[in-house]
Design a binder for these strands. Structure first.
Lengths: 153, 153
DNA sequence: TCTATAGCGTACCAATCCGGTCCGAATTGG
DNA sequence: CCAATTCGGACCGGATTGGTACGCTATAGA
């Protein structure tokens, strides 16, 4: 199973690229060239990010995109949410209303807890963290080591 | 964004149901009735779980399914992987070979770390945990609280 | 003022995946 | 040995997603 959709993945790459060059204003085409992603798709992603207020766009000649905030102030969770919608492990985590088994399903509350954990993890990682060397929010690092456990991740 | 596919979600519900009645042998139809899930879908899920060796099936009259191991020895990660394939945040986490930008993409190694974290979390949760009251592997609990952060999870 | 540039919005096509159905194989009980 | 039951595998339609194209609007510079 792939957790992030391709689009969300690309979105983070694009946002990270902008974060790496906070001074410059970049056009969609330039970003596409730099990241080797399809130009049309990059344009679409930037629209979504602009819609969410994460990047600001200026139109016209010499226009382009730039980050709306400092790279350290934008979390990966926000970027993903801007493109793929709200984050939730299960259907009922996001749209609880169209789950008709909330009453007797014993797994619900547990999923909710897992949701919070994953969400907190993604929220704790900023774009700054994504472009630098491995120096995460301690949370992730601490979380990653203990249970190597089974299952091929 | 919904992280688990509906199928994977249902799979965990089915597995949890089996875990709740480890003594009995249950037919696909019986499980479907108990969980209020579509019978055809439950049958399909059980096939996948059987294929992965998580449940053992006996055919013929008086046949049915039963867990292959003790509920405490089966992790949620395994159930999900059996149905939805290997777990990975991004495409390249699972199929690194068809990502042609491994060299210059700065986000790769970070995703790998996040992968390990999420994978470890799901691997630390057993079916036993999913059917009982909230008493998780400490990891999750500790991980869930610190950063309430932003973003609607 | 005119033209080139660049983002904005929408609509559209293609591919994949999800969810479900159907029929065949195995096993048990009479 | 037959028939009922239950799993096993192949197949199919529909929905969601990924990706593209086109017309419109806004800005900068000649």
């Amino acid at each position: 199973m792939i957790i992030l959709s391709k689009l969300a993945d690309y979105g983070v790459i694009v946002a990270a690229h902008l974060a790496a060059h906070p001074d410059r204003q970049a056009t969609a085409a330039a970003i596409a060239a730099a990241t080797r992603l399809p130009p049309a798709t990059v344009a679409k992603l930037l629209k979504a990010l602009a819609h969410a207020g994460l990047v600001s766009a200026t139109r016209g000649a010499a226009g382009g995109y730039r980050l709306g905030r400092l790279p350290a102030a934008i979390s990966v969770a926000e970027v993903v949410a801007a493109i793929a919608g709200d984050i939730g492990m299960t259907q009922c985590s996001v749209h609880a209303e169209d789950c008709d088994r909330t009453n007797y399903c014993p797994t619900r509350p547990h999923w909710a807890a897992i949701n919070r954990a994953v969400g907190a993890a993604l929220s704790a990682i900023s774009l700054d963290d994504m472009i630098g060397p491995m120096a995460f929010a301690p949370a992730i690092a601490a979380f990653a080591e203990p249970a190597a456990a089974d299952s091929r991740i």
